[in-house]
Write a protein that binds this DNA or RNA. Structure first.
Length: 810
DNA sequence: ATGGGGACAGTTTTT
DNA sequence: CTGTCCCCAT
């Protein structure tokens, strides 16, 4: 069962008092709060519009004002407006803001939700057109992989050599591109040992029998329906007078097709996005969609939102200069009225631990208020990393020094083992025939129903065309199991039957009733008002968790996670209070998946750059700017040009999260999979404008200044930067050690390399690798053959002459 | 049926 | 150096 927000009702957002206020305020008060570009984006109502909205330019403000304006001017009734987002969070925010603007009193509710939630709603009405029943269940990745594994085994393939995970990736890729099994053509049929498309077809068939879909299917099925049933398509084309799309740069082919089909009616489609913030190419997003917009929708108005209200001029200049290196941009430059502020800071540290230590100290210093901006609390500071494994060094360090932090990311609430188990029990209570749920918990907690017993049940079910639940009953009747196992199974089956009765008793025949009349699109309203809540389902759920022995299992578990899991189960039950019945809850799991729970706590945020998109913090730290880590080696290997550009956009996203102060850092050494590796500073560092960057002295042993001083660029900027570098303590230290300065070329950029004057054959010492011999040099790097490690290329500033090894204090 | 140990891989993540 | 998955011994 998936956990996303199927319900995107606009419920309860509008009250009558708000309505009165709205009337008094006058129809379009909010319009006057917009800048000229935003205003154009709001008032250009007819035809296709592309709103190119840079980071921090008030995109949501414009988008929500546009919706309000459409309604206020009577261009469309609320429910004739379709607005799609990618995340529930974005959808929620838009709903809140639109209702605030309108102040209530509107007739109906816009279709505002994620691509997936809107598609669920539509697909439930037309499920039979793709061979499904309207009450289909939505599987998440876990279920998906378990199914695929079964199919791979059934196809006599070695599931080790051909992992289900990989097949899932391939199939997702196809679905992202709106390819049904019969449309997978050419070289792609060779995927997965030549069996890819065959397994894909089998998988789709299996989903159909289970009356289930995966996430990709939600869009894929809707696209298929629109393509094959013109009458259905025409209805929606007529119905949705205005379409709005958020984060258009993140759409994949299926979403693009879906939108294009729907927009062909009134042609009033407004797409909002930023090609410079397209960072999800690896999961099917096509930057091409936004780049091609004007071709796809001829006569489109393109409106650029470039005035930034978030960051200082230095931060914007750094971000702008960096992203300018990318080719194939629509072009856009952020500017701000705000002047002054601190430059982007750059520092090189010895290794990952040192980096964590330094950042920890900076955070404390900022909190104490040593800078001009005054004290900055923890919750205003964030560390944004490229890969989640980087978080560990910070967690370790912060735990030691007692610095409060919070990690965003990690497994979501609904993805946790105990929540999924509990959900499987609830699913069985609602529909005992849910085979995937049955399979999941038949032996959780351990009931002595292992492979053997489960195979017996499987066989009985398959041979008689029954669900596992009915198969189990059959096995019990025919005495196909030994005494102990039979007893346990009987208990399990009887429990399910009893829970099911209770569910049916509690909510008589109110099972999801999506089958409305397709011809009456007037009925195309958002969701109905829920009936009164008698909380009987809460007791039932508690009963289920008790009867099944599931709670007991965790109570008896002595592992350190157990208490947390029990805590989560309690939270799950608590979340149920907001729903009138179990079915409703199962459809709404997503509401509790928000993991920004303890927001408001005074904690430093640690998260990935991807997770940070759309957020902002006064203070931002960007650690790990090292080639191979960021930009990540893998992206560059997979698609050198494309991959590097996406990484650069990620860097752009990172810098533009900062309001006041942005600090970039890199380490010269890093432990990768237990091996010490020497790191080179990220090439992105060379792409920053020196005039807007302050190079901090690192205080590293041996200067350790690396590319921090090997940094700058041509023209006036260059001189300014070099002067800073010369004056810095790190530089002076190196001078005294016999370091020479020679500008070097790297690509098109001039680098003020401080080429360390080591000679070929000279003995040197490195903190992690020990002694070695210099084989050659290349710009600011040297090649060293270490006695006790491999030959490595590293920054000259990370080694010292062998006879100075004693001076290195560690 | 179950848990311990060996083999193995190892970005980014929403729905 | 982790964490995960699977196999095999109990």
């Amino acid at each position: 069962m998936s956990g996303f927000d199927e319900d995107d009702a606009f419920e309860g957002a509008l009250s009558l008092s708000q309505r009165a206020m709205g009337a008094m305020r006058g129809a379009a008060g909010y319009i006057h709060e917009l800048n000229p570009a935003q205003r154009a984006a709001v008032e250009t109502l007819d035809g296709p519009v592309l709103m190119l909205a840079g980071a921090g330019t008030g995109k949501t403000k414009a988008l929500t004002a546009r919706i309000a304006h459409l309604i206020d001017t009577g261009r469309a009734r609320p429910n004739e407006i379709l607005a799609v987002t990618f995340t529930n969070k974005a959808a929620r925010e838009m709903k809140e803001r639109v209702s605030r603007l309108l102040g209530g009193g509107i007739d109906g509710v816009p279709w505002l939700g994620t691509f997936h939630s809107v598609c669920v709603k539509l697909l439930r009405r037309h499920a039979e057109l793709v061979g499904l029943k309207p009450n289909f269940t939505i599987l998440d990745t876990d279920d998906q992989i378990r199914l695929l594994k079964q199919l791979i085994v059934a196809a006599n393939m070695d599931e080790k050599r051909w992992p289900a995970r990989q097949l899932a990736g391939i199939i997702d890729g196809w679905k992202n591109r709106a390819l049904t099994p019969d449309r997978v053509k050419g070289a792609e049929t060779a995927a997965f040992n030549n069996r890819g498309s065959e397994l894909y077809a089998a998988y789709q068939e299996r989903l159909r029998t289970l009356n289930a879909v995966d996430f990709g299917d939600l869009l894929l099925h809707m696209v298929s329906i629109f393509q094959m049933h013109d009458d259905v398509l025409k209805q929606y084309q007529r119905w949705f007078k205005y379409i709005l799309v958020d984060e258009y740069q993140d759409t994949n082919v299926a979403q693009y097709l879906w939108l294009r089909l729907l927009a062909q009616g009134h042609r009033n489609i407004c797409c909002v996005g930023d090609d410079d913030q397209s960072i999800y190419g690896w999961r099917g997003a096509e930057v091409g969609n936004i780049l091609r917009f004007e071709k796809d929708f001829p006569g489109a108005a393109v409106i650029r939102l470039e005035q930034n209200y978030r960051s200082t001029e230095h931060i914007l200049a750094a971000a702008s200069r960096l992203i300018a290196t990318n080719e194939g941009r629509l072009g856009k430059e952020l500017w701000t009225e705000a002047k002054g502020g601190e430059k982007v800071r750059l520092i090189g540290l010895w290794d990952g631990e040192e980096e964590a230590r330094w950042i920890g100290e900076e955070i404390e210093a900022l909190r104490r208020g040593t800078r001009a901006m005054g004290p900055v609390s923890y919750d205003k500071q964030a560390i944004l990393v490229r890969a989640s494994h980087q978080m560990r060094a910070f967690e370790d360090r912060f735990l030691t020094i007692g610095l409060p932090y919070r990690v965003i990311g990690g497994p979501r609430f609904y993805e946790r083992l105990e929540i999924r188990d509990a959900m499987a029990y609830f699913r069985l209570a609602v529909s005992p025939d849910d085979d995937l749920a049955f399979e999941r918990v038949v032996n959780t907690p351990k009931r002595g129903l292992g492979d053997k017993a489960q195979n017996t049940i499987q066989r009985a079910a398959r041979e008689n065309g029954l669900s596992l639940f009915d198969g189990a009953r059959l096995v019990l009747q025919s005495g196909g199991l030994s005494g102990k196992a039979a007893g346990q199974l009987r208990l399990f089956v009887e429990n399910i039957a009893r829970w099911h009765e209770a569910v049916r008793g509690a909510s008589p025949a109110t099972a999801t009733s999506p089958a409305e009349d397709d011809d009456a699109l007037i009925e195309l309203e958002a969701d109905a008002v829920p009936p009164a809540n008698d909380h009987s389902h809460i007791r039932l759920v508690e009963q289920i968790l008790e009867d099944s022995g599931y709670v007991e299992m965790w109570v008896n578990d002595k592992t350190p996670e157990a208490p947390g899991r029990l805590e989560n189960l309690k939270e799950l039950v608590k979340a149920l209070e907001q729903f009138e019945n179990l079915q409703g809850f199962l459809e709404h799991v997503a509401l509790i998946m928000d993991n920004d729970r303890d927001e408001g706590d005074q904690k430093v945020t640690i998260m990935t750059l991807h997770a940070a998109k759309g957020l902002e913090f006064p203070i931002v730290f960007l650690p790990g700017w090292e080639d191979g880590l960021f930009p990540s080696q893998r992206s560059m290997d997979e698609a050198p040009q494309k991959g590097l550009e996406e990484e650069r956009r990620l860097a752009y996203v990172g810098i533009t999260r900062a309001e006041e102060l942005c600090t970039i850092s890199f380490a010269g050494n890093r432990r990768v999979y237990g091996q010490w590796q020497s790191q080179l500073p990220s090439r992105f560092i060379d792409e920053l404008p020196a005039a807007h960057v302050e190079v901090l002295p690192s205080g590293m042993v041996g200067g350790g200044f690396g590319a921090a001083s090997a940094y700058g660029r041509g023209g006036i900027e260059e001189r300014a930067s070099r002067a800073d570098v010369y004056a810095s303590p790190g530089w002076q230290r190196m001078q005294s050690r016999g370091v020479s300065s020679q500008p070097q070329r790297r690509g098109a950029m001039i680098i003020d390399a401080e080429t360390v004057a080591f000679e070929i054959g000279e003995r040197v010492f490195h903190k992690k690798f020990g002694y070695g011999e210099v084989l050659g040099s290349e710009g600011d790097k040297i090649v060293v053959a270490f006695d006790k490690a491999d030959t490595k290329k590293l920054l000259a500033s990370f080694v010292v002459p062998a006879d100075e090894a004693d001076d290195v204090p560690f």
